[in-house]
Nucleic acid binder design. Structure first.
Lengths: 243, 243
DNA sequence: CGCCTCTTTGACACGTGTCAACGACGGTGG
DNA sequence: CCACCGTCGTTGACACGTGTCAAAGAGGCG
């Protein structure tokens, strides 16, 4: 299975223009980025970068979902990050990365060669500042995930995961009719949540049996009761729904 | 129990001079920091900052250990970071934090009022750059911890924890005679590792029974066989000892 | 149509949490 | 100086959640 390398769109028309690393750039800065960038695409399941490999390029995710994962010697793996459109791969001043980056769905990246990009970062406070914000956002979500991994039950993990997906995907629908698409297989969800795929499957079934969610097929789910779902996450009772 | 607020030492004589946020500063920049800083001390167990509280100051840890933790509605808590000397509290552009910061041991901080410090960051690339590095280091260790929380067994978690302490504390001793001090109670270790305090205690006992570690008292432990300890961490077999 | 991957479900095992009792240590006050 | 008390740590018995192993169903693609 091959994926065509899409031709890059103009930065000014880019769907992630306002949230990616270029979010704060003025027109001149954008022109400079424009001249440096290349688009690359990866099919679902394909490796984007391997741990320890020298880092030739950095990139923003234009479309699709990528994951960061770490593996123990005996093969147990844990996802340590989920990258969505506008998220950034690679860091200034780091020549390699400490985890594998994999395309979870089909992915399109807006790539920059690392060395010239680092030069640009040094000369462009707007970009440096935005990179800092993106890193801090990742740090916050990593810490939320540590709480989930260390202290939540399987049911709470699944409920939290679904709630996160619903919040990010579909705010257009009427309340109590939230629908969303699972962007990954049961196995990948298990690796994200620190569970086995069997436990993931069982917890989905249990939430379905309790009337909180429903599946139209494997990937598409409807949250029938968002309040009840939130009650299952273990987080503050006021939290999400009313916020 | 009160802790005296130590008078600040000269930046040029500061023990964390070469690793903290000021690491890359030249003499002029250091003078400016010097004029802004205040020392504060906190006794073991004391709260330094509460989640959601407006962030009045940022700080570097001069001595002692502080922890970041998150709590679920029913009281389950998870440490999401351990701050050692030279680590930084607070972020540019964030007016509050999403976790509690607590003094684990007696702690001394080098504090700066947030607003003037942010101004300084904007005007001082050396500081901005160093802050970025510190954030990325934290992100890397958060991700290592996610792997531990999600996939390691209790014994692997304890072995990893001890190995981390030994690496950071005592490189002066001869091989196979590594000694270290546990900077926290069993309960705090449990919250760091996503375990219960009983499990922590049992795993310490098991490693002692297997001749891998030994205790002279509750806090002081000797690693009698560092290679065997590393074998218990679940990490790559080549990893630490030979590196 | 048949193969392959993904998913579901069941039976069972085992690691870790829970509950409880006891022991060790350190500080305080008589 | 010693007795007391509170905190912290250890150990045991048991329960329960989640992992493991196994089999079969569901859907997609050649």
């Amino acid at each position: 299975m091959t994926v065509p390398h899409l031709t890059a769109v103009k930065c000014s028309e880019c769907p992630i223009r306002h949230r990616a690393v270029c979010a704060r750039c003025d027109t001149d800065e954008l022109d400079r980025l424009e001249s440096m960038k290349t688009y690359r695409s990866f099919a679902a399941g394909e490796a984007i970068l391997w741990r320890g490999e020298p880092l030739e390029f950095v990139a923003s995710i234009v479309s699709g979902v990528a994951s960061l994962s770490k593996t123990l010697e005996d093969g147990r793996t844990q996802m340590v990050g989920l990258l969505l459109p506008s998220d950034f791969i690679g860091r200034p001043g780091r020549s390699e990365i400490e985890f594998d980056v994999t395309a979870t769905s089909d992915v399109t990246l807006c790539c920059f060669d690392r060395k010239p990009f680092e030069k640009l970062v040094d000369e462009t406070p707007h970009v440096a500042h935005r990179l800092m914000e993106l890193a801090l956002d990742e740090l916050d979500s990593a810490r939320d995930w540590m709480l989930l991994l260390g202290r939540k039950t399987a049911r709470e993990k699944i409920a939290t995961f679904i709630e996160m997906l619903v919040r990010r995907s579909d705010l257009r629908n009427a309340p109590n009719n939230h629908t969303t698409v699972l962007p990954m297989t049961r196995d990948q969800i298990a690796n994200y949540l620190g569970l086995t795929l069997e436990t993931v499957s069982r917890q989905f079934s249990a939430l379905k049996k309790d009337g909180i969610i429903d599946f139209s097929d494997r990937k598409n789910l409807v949250v029938k009761n968002l309040f009840a779902l939130h009650q299952e996450t273990g987080d503050d009772s006021d939290g999400g729904v009313l916020a």
